[in-house]
Design a protein around this nucleic acid. Structure first.
Lengths: 156, 156
DNA sequence: CTTGACCTTGTAGCGACTATAGGGTTTGCA
DNA sequence: TGCAAACCCTATAGTCGCTACAAGGTCAAG
């Protein structure tokens, strides 16, 4: 199976597959005489594993770790638990802060009722006032990596 | 006020302030004879406005737009409404997909009950099985920019 | 023998910072 | 007056997880 076929079967882009190989997540496949990558069922499984973990929001570093655990199955399981727990709490934090954010945005949206010029726009007024009122009230809207911003949060 | 003082008052890092200036979000301040940036209350307000918008998850491009609206208050207010609406729906999508993700991770966490080796780890087993079962079931966990990934979503 | 679809490597770009190197300035204290 | 610490400056490279491009090689069909 060539890389394009693997891409088709997994829904992953060709460039991304090569990127995962470069990053050491996907094992390097055999090559044809002309240098083309040739994949087998095992590597299809590997890639699906990676994609599934990515769809659970895990970082490539986390997936690399999981793959190492898979390879040496005599290791302690605690590390996997910890990894998942970290992921759970990260996502939970993200959900909470985004919900808060959504409330704030909806409140903001309510401030403007079809006026015609910016001068009368309640949204803009509210934004300006809010930023004046509270020089640094940290809402910590985002967990960490997906949307870090300067103002609100020490990295953990 | 020097840049360090501005940083202290806003909770924003010095490097980030300089970055915002480079990006044209913050107006360039006057300089002392030795080239040090000197800020006044107006620019403190500007920066707080930027930080507040960032804390609402807006992109720098959006904030640039809002600032332009603020500057020319004769413009139509509809654009601001649209901008906020886009932001609301973006955040709403993110919340929804993250909640789904959280459920999946919690279910995953339940698969492992203090076994001792990776060989018996329910989490790893579940991950492998799930990735085998469904070559490309797209859960679209993340909205768009904060955490894009290959597998799940066409950019909008 | 050419066309087009594939494959290769290498490099640069995205957003929003963050960090580093390598220097200049200012302030306070002995 | 000398000096160290704390500040400031610019420019450049790194982060993450891709994505896109350039410039070329390969292969099957017509």
């Amino acid at each position: 199976m060539l890389i394009g076929e693997l891409a088709r079967q997994t829904g992953c882009e060709v460039e991304t597959i090569r990127y995962y190989e470069r990053e050491g997540l996907l094992s390097a496949p055999l090559r044809s005489a002309s240098g083309y990558r040739r994949y087998n069922a095992e590597q299809l499984g590997e890639l699906n594993f990676i994609l599934h973990c990515r769809s659970l929001g895990m970082s490539l570093a986390d997936i690399r770790q999981l793959a190492a655990f898979k390879a040496d199955s005599s290791l302690a399981c605690d590390d996997i638990n910890q990894l998942i727990d970290r992921q759970v709490s990260k996502v939970h934090q993200q959900v909470e802060s985004l919900r808060l954010l959504e409330q704030q945005l909806l409140a903001l949206r309510d401030r403007c009722h079809d006026h015609h010029t910016v001068a009368e726009c309640g949204i803009l007024q509210t934004l300006v006032e809010a930023s004046e009122g509270e020089p640094c009230v940290c809402h910590t809207p985002f967990g960490q990596d997906p949307h870090p911003h300067p103002h609100s949060m020490e990295k953990q």
